[in-house]
């Protein structure tokens, strides 16, 4: 099947020797949310700018909805909706005027345009503020207006460059449900860039980790995490009312050797182990403990986070990479 977005070996450098993209390649399947995850300066926005025809790659090729971004920019522009990293709202116009002009630019007009504008204002909770100047909108309202504007011509592919950065957690959660609805409910393809590990985890069916203009890993969030050394399982052993009493030293031997369980260790009252798929391993583990009459107080399975994934593929933590980028830009 044809991919909704294809990027193949994109290279782009800026004056002063900054290589923003260094052979970036990825594909996004139609109707899915794809996340580009990376720290500041990784090249996410540069990739979006190329894919949305704002700028051209030095090398490589890319297509959106099957259309080449360099050879057929006008067709790409019709197929794509774009929410840039900074807002693109005209703050001297009202929300309605912004939406109307955006529609007109895509060739819409008359009653059908007014209807569409009204619909979007309603859907993004801007109906009451529709005729107020956008300068007075809150950050969340401006962002919602940005997204509404990107949707006015009903694009098939939507680019959202850090749509939730700077929003408070409540507004962010609302935005998340709106974004997942776009792909699930309306069959749109969404490319989302983000700094937030949990955002990529939550929204993206597949994601790519970008570092220094290259993709260092890609897959579904689950796949990426599974490629790590497995989940951590922590079993808290019950102590039969006597808190100081050391647990039965037979606990580790009870589970050692179970299929898929590794690195068994006892630390105080915590029985630690690793498993490729922690969720699957737990029932057998509990059974084995029960068979050895070891009482269990609680069990926790800790999934590796995308942070762990990032660390594994780039050799530094996400926070360290962000700090480094901040250093460079200073």
């Amino acid at each position: 099947m044809q991919q909704a977005i294809e990027a193949d070996g994109l290279v782009k450098s800026y004056p002063k020797g900054v290589t923003a993209l260094d052979g970036l390649s990825f594909e996004v399947q139609q109707g899915t949310v794809f996340g580009l995850l990376g720290p500041n300066g990784a090249g996410k926005s540069t990739a979006v700018k190329i894919l949305t025809t704002l700028t051209r790659p030095d090398q490589g090729r890319a297509s959106v909805a099957g259309l080449d971004v360099v050879a057929q920019p006008d067709l790409v522009r019709r197929a794509a909706g774009v929410v840039a990293q900074g807002s693109g709202v005209d703050v001297q116009a009202t929300g309605r005027e912004n939406l109307r002009l955006q529609g007109q630019v895509y060739g819409m007009r008359g009653r059908s345009l007014e209807r569409r504008v009204g619909e979007l204002l309603e859907r993004f909770g801007l109906a009451d503020a529709a005729d107020r100047i956008a300068r007075g909108y809150s950050g969340g309202m401006q962002r919602r207006l940005d997204i509404a504007m990107a949707l006015v011509h009903d694009p098939t592919v939507l680019f959202l460059d850090e749509p939730t950065t700077g929003l408070d957690p409540e507004v962010r959660a609302e935005m998340w449900s709106e974004i997942s609805g776009l792909a699930a409910g309306q069959g749109k393809t969404v490319l989302l860039t983000t700094h937030y590990l949990e955002e990529a985890d939550q929204l993206a069916a597949r994601l790519a980790i970008v570092d220094r203009g290259r993709i260092v890993a890609q897959g579904s969030p689950e796949e990426l995490k599974r490629e790590l050394r497995g989940d951590a399982i922590q079993v808290e052993l019950a102590s039969d009312g006597a808190p100081e009493q050391a647990p039965d030293g037979s606990a580790p031997s009870a589970i050692d050797g179970l299929p898929g369980i590794r690195e068994v260790a006892l630390e105080g009252r915590m029985l630690l182990a690793r498993a490729d798929d922690g969720g699957r391993a737990v029932p057998a583990l509990l059974q084995a403990l029960e068979a050895h009459s070891v009482a269990v107080a609680s069990v926790r399975v800790a999934r590796p986070s995308l942070d762990d994934v990032y660390l594994r593929y780039t050799g530094r933590t996400f926070d360290a990479a962000e700090a480094e980028a901040a250093e460079v830009s200073r």
Binding site: D74, R77, Y106
Partner: peptide, 16 residues
């Protein structure tokens, strides 16, 4: 001012 506010970039990725 439009360049700084991203308004021009928004128009440039439209078919206008």
């Amino acid at each position: 001012e439009d360049l700084n506010r991203g308004v021009t970039a928004r128009f440039l990725v439209s078919p206008v």
